[in-house]
């Protein structure tokens, strides 16, 4: 019971307080890859804490034994003991329902999101392959369109697409090279899968602040990460110029999010002096992430390990007899 309570509180803190503290953190922009990992870890940790809390309620801690028959017997004994009382039974049932509901919801929403994304990509690609002009030398598909835009269609049959408007806007070849390096970084690091997962979780639990904040933050950070890769190749100012050329060409009525657009933040970040996070701080951040991920397992695992010292089976039970007969 205490184990379940601790896990519940942990999951609740991760889902509500942690994202508010971390949102827009400056260090994440200086180490976007670490930032992405931290947001992913928060989600995974909160989910596993909720599932384990449910399991801890429904399954009592059982003495671990090397003898399978004995172990099963101990399980049965402990389960009957818990479910003999009405309170224990309802807590157990509620726990099981919670664990199954969380797992089921994640599986269902992720499956639905992946299917939808695959279908949308396929229809887009079918049209693209007929109306686009392939530029095999540069690995591009060119669309005849005035408005500057560049995007990639991720997945197994991936396409990098650029409009004639964007090609005209990009003043020099090295700016185009920056655009391509950015898109290649998305593909190499499977940012589409990272985003799909974040999006699925946000849709699965729309009321949990953690998941929709994580989705927005991850969306921003994968772009900054890809910008960094492009900048390492083509230079930070060249990459900033490429971003500006594609983003600021012809501005339609754009709904501006509070505090300036992500695009503007990305350009500023490339123009300002580059201050990547020190190795030491990245190591510290990674360690924190590992700990956050391990906490739910340790909370469950601790008592279970302690329980190996306990004898749940009273004398005279079949299990005890089996052991005595040996």
């Amino acid at each position: 019971m205490i184990v379940a309570a601790i896990l519940f509180v942990y999951a609740a803190l991760l889902s509500t307080v942690a994202p508010r503290l971390l949102r827009g953190a400056h260090w994440a922009e200086r180490a976007p890859r670490l930032g992405i990992v931290v947001w992913q870890v928060l989600g995974a940790s909160a989910l596993s804490a909720a599932v384990l809390a449910g399991l801890a309620l429904s399954v009592p801690t059982v003495r671990v034994s090397t003898d399978l028959a004995e172990l099963l017997q101990a399980c049965v004994m402990a389960l009957t003991a818990q479910y003999a009382t009405p309170g224990g039974a309802s807590a157990g049932a509620a726990g099981a329902v919670l664990a199954l509901a969380v797992l089921g919801r994640v599986a269902w929403c992720t499956g639905a999101a992946l299917l939808r994304i695959r279908r949308e990509r396929q229809t887009h690609r079918e049209v693209l392959d007929i109306v686009g002009r392939p530029d095999t030398a540069r690995g591009l598909v060119i669309l005849d369109h005035e408005e500057p835009a560049a995007y990639c269609l991720p997945g197994r049959h991936r396409r990098t697409v650029i409009t004639t408007g964007a090609l005209r806007a990009l003043a020099a070849d090295d700016q185009l090279e920056a655009v391509l390096a950015h898109e290649r970084a998305h593909q190499a690091e499977r940012h589409d899968a990272v985003l799909a997962w974040a999006q699925a979780l946000a849709r699965a639990f729309p009321r949990v602040p953690l998941f929709h904040i994580a989705e927005a933050e991850i969306g921003r950070l994968v772009e900054m990460r890809a910008d960094d890769v492009a900048a390492a190749r083509s230079g930070r100012l060249t990459t900033a110029a490429a971003l500006l050329a594609v983003a600021g060409g012809s501005a339609p009525a754009v709904a501006l999010s509070a505090g300036g657009s992500t695009a503007a933040r990305r350009v500023r970040r490339l123009i300002e002096p580059h201050r990547p996070l020190s190795r030491l701080r990245i190591a510290a951040g990674s360690l924190t992430a590992v700990i956050a991920l391990a906490v739910p397992l340790l909370v469950v695992g601790g008592p279970a390990a302690a329980a190996t010292q306990l004898n749940y089976c009273p004398d005279g039970t079949p299990a005890a007899q089996v052991t005595t007969m040996r």
Partner: peptide
């Protein structure tokens, strides 16, 4: 997550 666009359009003043 269907498409990964290079950059979104930004308002004229900002650009």
């Amino acid at each position: 997550a269907t498409l990964a666009r290079f950059v979104q359009q930004m308002p004229h003043g900002e650009a």
